[in-house]
Each structure stands twice: as C-alpha cells, then as structure tokens.
Write a protein that binds this DNA or RNA. Sequence first.
DNA 1: ATAGTAAATATACAATGTTTATTAGGAAGT
DNA 2: ACTTCCTAATAAACATTGTATATTTACTAT
Lengths: 203, 203
Amino acid sequence: MGISERRERERQEMKTKILDTATKLIVEKGIEKTTIRSIATAIEYSPRTIYLYFKDKDEILYALSKKGFQLFVQQFEAAQSSANPMDRLRDIHERYLRFAFENPALYDLMFILNDPMNADPVKDGWEIGLKGHSILRSTVDACIEEGHFPGQDAATVAFTLWSYVHGMVALKLRNRMRMYPKEQIDQIILDSSEMMLGLLERM
Amino acid sequence: MGISERRERERQEMKTKILDTATKLIVEKGIEKTTIRSIATAIEYSPRTIYLYFKDKDEILYALSKKGFQLFVQQFEAAQSSANPMDRLRDIHERYLRFAFENPALYDLMFILNDPMNADPVKDGWEIGLKGHSILRSTVDACIEEGHFPGQDAATVAFTLWSYVHGMVALKLRNRMRMYPKEQIDQIILDSSEMMLGLLERM
DNA sequence: ATAGTAAATATACAATGTTTATTAGGAAGT
DNA sequence: ACTTCCTAATAAACATTGTATATTTACTAT
C-alpha cells in the first residue's frame, strides 16, 4: 500500500514545512508577531489548514521548543571532551550562555514563556528537557567524585548553577539590567561567571 | 477654586480605583485574563473610560509594576536591622524569595514579562527599580568593608546573587522545575540557598 | 438661559485564535 | 465506468481582545 505511505509522508512534510516557517518567522519577528495567519500566508495555505496539522498554536510552540531542546542538548554533548570534569562544567556554562544569546527566541520558548505544555501534557513528557539537566547533573557528579563541592549534594549544586545562569540570561533577555550601562552588560556577565566558577572550583 | 481641585481629586480616585481593581483581577485570574473590559466591568464603567485615565494597557501594567517595586523596596528596607552586613544579605535573600512567591503576579510584571515600559520610557525611568538594587549593592559594599568577598568587585557580587535568586524564582514560577518532585521543590530552593550563602560567607 | 467644556458612552475596527459549513479531488467499491 | 466516500483544503464566520471615532450627557461658566 504505497498510497497511505505517500500520504503519511506528505503529512510529515507539511508539518515540517509549518514548523520551519514558524521558526523562521519567530527568529525574524518574534513570537508574538508570529501568528497562525502569518504562517499560513508564508506557506501559501489558508489559516484553517494549519489546524489540520496542529491542534492549536500551543502545539506548534511546543514542537518548536522541543526542537530547541534538541539543539540545546547537542551543544552540551559536544562539551564532554575534556577529561577534567570541572573544565567540562565550565564548558557547559559557556555553551549555555552562548545558546541562549544566539537563540533568544528559542530560549524564551524553552525556559521563560508560560509553558505551552497544555498540548501533550505528560506523554513524551519531557525526556529531552530532562536530558539537558541530566548532562549537567552527571558532570557535577563527576566533579564530586574528584573531590569537588565537599559536603554538597550533586542535585543542589546542579540546581544552584542552573538557577544562576538562567537568572543572568533571563534578566538580560528581558531587559532588566537597565541599571548597568548597555555596553558593560556582557562584561558583567563574564565577570560574574568567572567569580561563580572560580568559587566553585575552589570549594 | 475648589472645583478643579475636586476634579483632580476625583480623577486620582478613579485612577486608584482602576489600579486597585486591576490588581485584584490580576491576583485572582492572572495577567492575561485581566482585560481592559474585565476591569471596566468590575468598576461598572465602559471600556473606553479606562482610556481617559490611562494611555493604554501597558501604562496600567507599568503603574502596577511600580506599585510592586514600592512594596518590594519596603521589604528590603525592613531588612536593614542587623548590625552584621552578612546577616543583612541573608535577610535580603530570604525576603526576595518570600516577596516573589507571595506575589507571583507582581513579580512577573516586575521581572519576567516583556517590559511594558514603552509607556513612560525613560522619564521617571526607574528610580524605584534602581532602589531595590542599590540596597542590595550597599549591603554588599558593607560586607566587603568587613573583609568579605576578597578580590571581588561589589557590582559583580551583587549581580551574581541577584541573577541566582531571580533564576530560582523564574524557574519555579514558570514551572520549569518539572524534573524535581513537586513536593521537594521548596526544599531544593532552601538547600541551594544555604549552599550559596554559605559559600559567600566563607569566601 | 445659553454656550462651552469635560466625562462617559455606544459603536465600530482591526488583529488574532479558532470553529462551522462547504467544496473539490482523488480513492475505493461495485 | 459509475457511484460513493473520504480527505484535504477552503471560505466565511465567531469570539475575544486592544483601541479609535463619533456622539451623547452632564456639569460649569458666562
């Protein structure tokens, strides 16, 4: 039965096309200005057609967020080269910041926006989201095995570092660092990162 | 001329009424579901009337955020009792968390949402927002004078601590801590805070 | 009492997410 | 080959929202 296969293929192609177009629009004009209609116009279909492939807008955003997590995790997996776990932690930290600032719209979807998880609530619930965390977690584990963070729980250390770096990213992305001169912001983030990582290294 | 005075008074009363009602609705049903129309209905006026008192919805949100900062700063000013600056820093940290979790909608407006600062962009630009930061900053200064944070810049320390606590708040408020069991989340935040503050104390 | 001004409203518009009802074209059954 | 059925797609419409235009109402000053 080649027909239903072709249909399924076409269906997947359409979904991909919608998601790719949505990604492009979001990067270009932001999430709020990326409407169902604008996606429809871009792919030259009627707005209603979008709904034949995605339940609602949230489902599209959720799919994009998932793609974001794939890219995100890829970055981290590339950070596993060094033999020294503390260096790997540093690498993860830097890659996290780079990912966030190079893909602000994706980061927004993944970590800042009110989560569009209503769609697809628990099912396939968050493995990919978990994976990023588990990479961080196991790197912290490795550090502890080498004698770092004495007396600390790995989960606590991992969460502390994550909160910290997310905080910097979120404050910058949401323009809440107005008290610092614009041209100094990146340097402040670097200085702070240096302080934090140094602190952890010397623990 | 009592008449124009009375008018001005009535005008202020109306603005207050609108803001109070908006606050109530936001706390009850969230920011998104608090519409101009719902505010109008609640105060028993037509929607258009709101616009006679506020330029647009952003101006209302901005006003609410400003009120939030007043409350916020009040909390911090109450944290200046202890003679030991490191204890004051601890106190600020705790009060920050308490403020955020007791006033999630306000915190959202103040620190997470895309800022509604389009209204009233720089004029009266952010003194009140700055004030919270300056309290933190001067507490860090006092710590440094007592020999804490050797070799560190006060601005860097203040920003690091702020990013960290904001990160925790933002991750929890936006439901991004799904990898932790719900009932453990508060404890994780406490443990992490203990680790972070202990780390800073022992620097 | 009349004219003018300020407050409030009814109505309407545009953008957006989404739904209902309809059409067109290919697939399947006889 | 003809008919039936289904699926993809659409047009049109609806509801909600922020906001603007035009009008009415009520108070103030002359």
